[in-house]
Nucleic acid binder design. Structure first.
Lengths: 195, 195
DNA sequence: CCGGCTTGCTGAGCAACGCTCAACACGCTA
DNA sequence: TAGCGTGTTGAGCGTTGCTCAGCAAGCCGG
């Protein structure tokens, strides 16, 4: 460093936990504009005001980093959607559906980005996504008070795909009313699951 | 090049069309093992026995290349699925469904790879995918002899998502018989579309 | 056989990115 | 104030996408 000017000292030392959280947070903020796997270490480090090297101190590989970001996004969704334990089980699914649609309405782009990135390409990211879907099936099946056999799991999972796709289209171009959408989804699920 | 040995002359000159086709073909062969976007120019060029530079002569960017590969994959699927024009329109959808399941059974990995890569990340690839889905909706709706309004389009598209997901699961773990699967899918579609 | 043209094709090299490593410096405690 | 743990950095390497100037294979008119 040059003699006469002391270097940039706005960079504070943070605790390990804080830094990790900050980095993941930055990843979440970039999600809507960039597919997870295309986040560049450079960009994230720049936004955090740190060097590339430091990011690699917290996340051994780039993949480890964006997997963490993906998991964080999934957790946000899950905690928002999960049923309140007091609700009678018959209405839990309806509530979850309602909250899911609300979530997509609120975070349009970032949610669509999440879903796209999740299905696509990288197996590590897909794993996080599949894991989340699996957890949701568990919740749904117990809320519906139905046994958890292979066939029903597949049907509910496929219904998720249906729901995701339809809701994604619906927020972009609402071809029916919100209650109609919810009723339709609920109806399809019921028919599928009570065969 | 050294004086005493004449260089490798097994490399033939090909016509522009041939080379393009060959490169796309190599991409298709690599699809099952590698997400489209992760194809490396190096690898493809090596397999084709040409220099990286030549690949960039035919495809200005990497993206342009793997978009072409994706489009080729989509076209293969389309031509295999499309109904034979002689079939009465009532049975066309059934036939398409049957051929679709057959396709997934035959090309398990490459098809799953295609679908994953399609949903994921890169907008250019997604566009090809969406375009294909759109064409399929057109075919399906005319085969069903139904009007083509916004709502129905959305429902059929979402049903595609349902179908894709369910069939993908089914080939990996058949939780019902093949005819049952086909009937279920057909049934869900009918109910959705005749509301 | 030869000069010249078209065009398929290559090698060297740059910039961006993921990743490594040795060392620095902040801020706490003795 | 010396010492220490640890948050942090800069320099640098290998790979990969991409560029560019120019080579060479095959075909033409002479």
């Amino acid at each position: 460093m040059t003699a006469s000017s002391r270097p940039d000292h706005r960079r504070l030392r943070r605790s390990a936990g804080d830094r990790r959280a900050q980095l993941v947070q930055i990843g979440l903020e970039l999600l809507p504009t960039t597919p997870v796997q295309e986040l560049t270490i450079d960009e994230v480090a720049r936004r955090a005001g740190i060097s590339r090297s430091l990011l690699f101190h917290y996340f051994a590989t780039k993949r480890e980093y964006y997997t963490a970001v993906t998991r964080a996004a999934a957790d946000l969704l899950m905690t928002h959607i999960l049923p309140e334990p007091e609700t009678p089980s018959g209405e839990q699914v309806t509530g979850m559906l309602d909250r899911y649609v609300g979530w997509v309405e609120t975070f349009r782009e970032s949610h669509l980005a999440f879903v796209r990135g999740a299905g696509g390409g990288d197996p590590w990211v897909s794993d996080v996504y599949e894991e989340t879907r699996g957890r949701l099936v568990d919740v749904a099946l117990t809320a519906l008070e139905l046994p958890d056999d292979a066939l029903r799991r597949q049907l509910v999972l496929a219904w998720f795909a249906f729901t995701e796709d339809l809701v994604a289209q619906w927020v972009l171009e609402p071809a029916m009313s919100r209650p109609e959408l919810l009723e339709l989804l609920r109806d399809v699920l019921d028919r599928l699951v009570t065969r």
